[in-house]
């Protein structure tokens, strides 16, 4: 496959940045999107150019490090798939592909396609935890959990914090991420003591970071590589309003 890439290049946080066009030849349809970029980067290095910086780690779709907006869609148009698990067979030979970083004020660009997602860490630090006595693991059945709650909590817990929800949201809102973390803990018995204070602390931190508000467009769920459902946001809203009612 031969492709034309239009890639966002930005040498550092203070650089203005611009789209740069590259030709990539002999791409195998079996390559992942990141492998295709690796091929381009090897050539750029040989030519003495600066390789395109992008985040990645596991390349198995489970770590949440990779992510870029491909042709206007976070992680590309393949549903429920991270960028590293997106394969070139989903693109046409001769296609032009536009690649941009996540765009949000709380996610400043570090370099090229790499953004700083520390804002997510601070939201987690604000309340995304349970205070329980640590020690040896308790027996699995020592605290009963309804099957439905366990399933829903697990669905929410699959969030890998990649930030695609923020990138896709027309408001630059982090509601789906924050809601996934809140829902995951608020459905389980271990999360109950801090349930209400957690929602307030995490939502307030989300606001403080400068993320936008949710208008329930559903763009986040549509691009989420883990398919976190939109009703987690209703769960977050419910917990948050209870916190303010008290």
């Amino acid at each position: 496959m031969n492709l034309t890439l239009r890639v966002w290049r930005q040498s550092g946080p203070s650089d203005d940045g611009r789209m740069v066009t590259y030709q990539v030849e002999d791409v195998s349809p079996d390559m992942s999107f990141l492998e295709m970029l690796d091929v381009l980067n090897e050539r750029l290095i040989l030519e003495g150019d600066d390789p395109i910086a992008f985040d990645h780690d596991c390349r198995e779709g489970i770590c949440g490090m990779c992510g870029m907006v491909i042709n206007g869609v976070a992680h590309g148009e393949q549903r429920a798939t991270t960028t590293c698990q997106l394969h070139m067979r989903h693109f046409e030979d001769g296609a032009t592909i536009t690649i941009e970083p996540w765009r949000a004020a709380p996610f400043p660009v570090v370099k090229d396609l790499v953004v700083d997602r520390s804002a997510f860490d601070r939201i987690i630090q604000a309340g995304g935890f349970v205070s329980v006595p640590a020690g040896s693991a308790p027996d699995a059945h020592s605290i009963p959990v309804r099957k439905e709650d366990a399933d829903d909590a697990f669905d929410a817990a699959t969030c890998i914090g990649c930030g695609a929800c923020v990138a896709a949201c027309p408001n630059g809102s982090a509601s789906l991420f924050t809601a996934a973390k809140i829902t995951h803990l608020s459905l389980l018995p271990q999360g109950q003591p801090e349930r209400v204070s957690r929602a307030k602390a995490m939502v307030d931190q989300m606001d403080a970071e400068g993320f936008g508000g949710c208008t329930n467009t559903g763009e986040c769920t549509a691009v989420c590589p883990k398919g976190i459902p939109l009703d987690t946001i209703a769960q977050m809203n419910s917990d948050y309003l209870k916190a303010n009612g008290k």
Partner: peptide, 24 residues
């Protein structure tokens, strides 16, 4: 206004993935 501030740099290409244009 909060939403506008949250995305100071716009996308060159942006494609909606959620169904229903009423939300937009």
């Amino acid at each position: 206004r909060r939403a506008g501030k949250a995305r100071p740099v716009k996308y060159v290409a942006k494609k909606s993935q959620a169904s229903g244009y009423t939300t937009h």
